[in-house]
Computed example of a mutant assay.
Amino acid sequence: MRFATWILLAVATLLAGCNTTPYDRATVYYDRAQYLSDLVKNFPGITEPIVQHGRCAVTITTPNSNTGTYYFCTFALTTNDLYVMGWNGKTMKYEELANVNLSAIKKISIWSFFRARQLQLTEGQRLLGLSVTIDDGGYDDGAATERLFDTLKSKGITVVKSEGQIKPPPAPAPMFIPIVIPR
């Protein structure tokens, strides 16, 4: 009987730690049907038609680096610009994380590992690693990332081989210091 109680307690503890909402979906609002009107309302300067848009994750760093700052985001591609937006829950508005003028991009590449894809855009002093995610969040959408890559490639931007994934900095690890108490 005690063994069954311990098993039940262990299962309940494990299930209590389950998260039902992906973290990116919980931090960035995105409604595909309403996104364009929300974006234009928040940024009236966007006057060009939006060709592609979606939910994403972006790492922003400097060229020749593979570690940078990580954000959950949405993106909107126009004929001349790529807008990468974060979400401010306090003001309930999109905030610009990066505005990339397509003519300023020096080179692009795509990194892939199994089904994961990352589009890498290099400007003069900035490097972005962008992965498109599914609308519900939580999973990379490799096909959508490749479509975005192909669209940018068709604009005549130089394509180079990827030098590896651009990653966020590692999370701080807890430090365990053993305390020895002599008898």
Rank of each mutant, 00 (worst) to 15 (best):
D135T: 04
I157R: 02
K153H: 13
T20D: 08
G89Y: 05
I108V: 10
A173D: 07
P174E: 06
R126H: 11
R32W: 00
A10E: 01
S65N: 14
G17N: 11
W6T: 10
Y71C: 02
A173Q: 15
S103W: 08
F75T: 03
D38I: 02
E163A: 14
G138E: 03
S154D: 10
A144H: 00
G45T: 08
Y23R: 13
G156W: 14
A12L: 14
P168L: 03
Q118E: 13
V100R: 05
T61R: 03
T91N: 13
T145Q: 06
F113L: 15
I134E: 11
T62G: 14
N19A: 10
K107L: 07
G164I: 08
N101S: 12
P169T: 05
L128F: 10
L102K: 06
K41L: 12
T20A: 12
W87I: 05
G142M: 09
V51Q: 08
S154W: 05
R117H: 13
L130D: 06
A12D: 00
L119P: 02
L9R: 08
D38P: 01
R147K: 14
Y30T: 03
G68W: 00
P178C: 02
Q125Y: 09
I110R: 00
H53D: 05
F113C: 12
H53E: 04
T78G: 07
N64F: 14
P178D: 06
A4T: 11
D135K: 00
G68N: 03
A98D: 11
L121M: 13
T133A: 04
A116E: 13
T145N: 08
K90N: 15
L128Y: 05
S37R: 10
V58L: 00
I177C: 09
T74M: 03
L36T: 08
I7W: 10
T78C: 11
N66L: 07
L130F: 02
P174H: 01
E95W: 03
L119K: 01
A57D: 06
Q34N: 13
K153Q: 13
L127F: 01
D135E: 07
A143C: 08
A116P: 03
I157W: 04
K41R: 15
V84F: 06
